[in-house]
């Protein structure tokens, strides 16, 4: 049982939950995730550990409410509990130890970039972060990243920082030279666009993939992705891979495998909410 210690709305659909999980807080490394199951009948979903406070025994989870499972999670309040959290899972980020790194975060991916930037900063790597969102209210983790180095904010409408996509800012920074590696986490189209910029320049680019997972221990193979033509299990071989080798089309396609079921689930949720149906599973 993992009590929610605090909760904060970061953007219109992104919520930060600080949750008690002392062992994970103590040993987690940048890039690792947990599998979360809210309670009986709930799905198991992977969530990156955005931050941790070993002294308080807490980990930070950042949840974008996109489907029933994530909506149920962000509905939790301090004092409520998450029944199951297992981890830390996945391989930790392969952190460089010197030089200058460009960390690019899009949307909720910014929360995933944060522990990576933190790890790089701790090792003495100069960190430049580019983060983006639709508009000012969608930009998250700006303050946290500013503590680790320069931050360039991009918004689609120019309401905060520069107007345009993160890739535009990335092009400018890369054109200035001196970037040894790029770490990019965000929606699949964003990561694909970043790779399209860095690949011709030959700048090493690490991306964090978010396929559908069940167990998170390599047991089911549901999270398979194609990297350099080889099938990999993101949960144990990743979740981070060489972006230049990732088949983003496949990832994007497989992420849509349950679209019909997601709609069905949403209809069912709505029917339960307005009292047409009684949920059988609490």
């Amino acid at each position: 049982m993992h009590p929610i210690l605090s909760k904060k709305q970061l953007s219109p659909n992104v919520t930060r939950l600080d949750v008690r999980a002392p062992r994970i807080a103590e040993i987690r490394l940048p890039g690792q995730f947990v599998i979360v199951r809210r309670g009986e009948g709930a799905e198991r979903i992977p969530l990156t550990i955005a931050d941790a406070d070993p002294a308080a025994g807490s980990i930070t989870l950042v949840v974008q409410a996109v489907g029933k499972t994530t909506r149920d999670l962000v509905a939790l309040n301090p004092g409520d509990v998450i029944q199951d959290i297992s981890g830390p899972l996945g391989r930790p980020t392969d952190l460089m130890t010197s030089g200058r790194a460009l960390c690019i975060g899009g949307g909720v991916g910014t929360a995933v970039i944060h522990p990576i930037a933190q790890g790089l900063h701790r090792r003495g790597v100069a960190v430049v972060s580019i983060i983006g969102g639709r508009s000012k209210e969608w930009v998250i983790f700006e303050e946290e990243l500013r503590r680790l180095g320069q931050v360039i904010v991009c918004t689609d409408d120019g309401s905060h920082g520069r107007k345009g996509f993160v890739t535009d800012a990335a092009k400018d920074v890369l054109a200035g030279g001196g970037v040894d590696a790029v770490y990019a986490v965000g929606p699949v189209p964003m990561m694909r666009a970043v790779v399209a910029v860095t690949k011709p320049l030959g700048v090493q680019t690490i991306v964090s993939l978010n396929p559908v997972m069940v167990d998170g221990t390599g047991m089911c193979g549901g999270c398979r992705v194609s990297v350099g033509g080889e099938t990999k299990f993101a949960c144990v071989d990743g979740p981070e891979f060489d972006g230049h080798l990732v088949d983003f089309d496949l990832l994007w396609d497989r992420l849509g495998a349950y679209r019909t079921q997601e709609q069905e689930s949403a209809r069912h949720e709505e029917a339960c909410r307005i009292g047409l149906k009684k949920p059988e599973v609490a």
């Binding site: 009948g41 709930a42 799905e43 198991r44 029933k68 499972t69 149920d72 069940v214 349950y258 079921q261 997601e262 069905e264 689930s265 209809r267 069912h268 949720e269 949920p279 059988e280 599973v281």
Partner: peptide, 8 residues
């Protein structure tokens, strides 16, 4: 049990 259970 989907959609009573969340996993499809």
């Amino acid at each position: 049990k989907f959609p009573e259970a969340d996993t499809p």
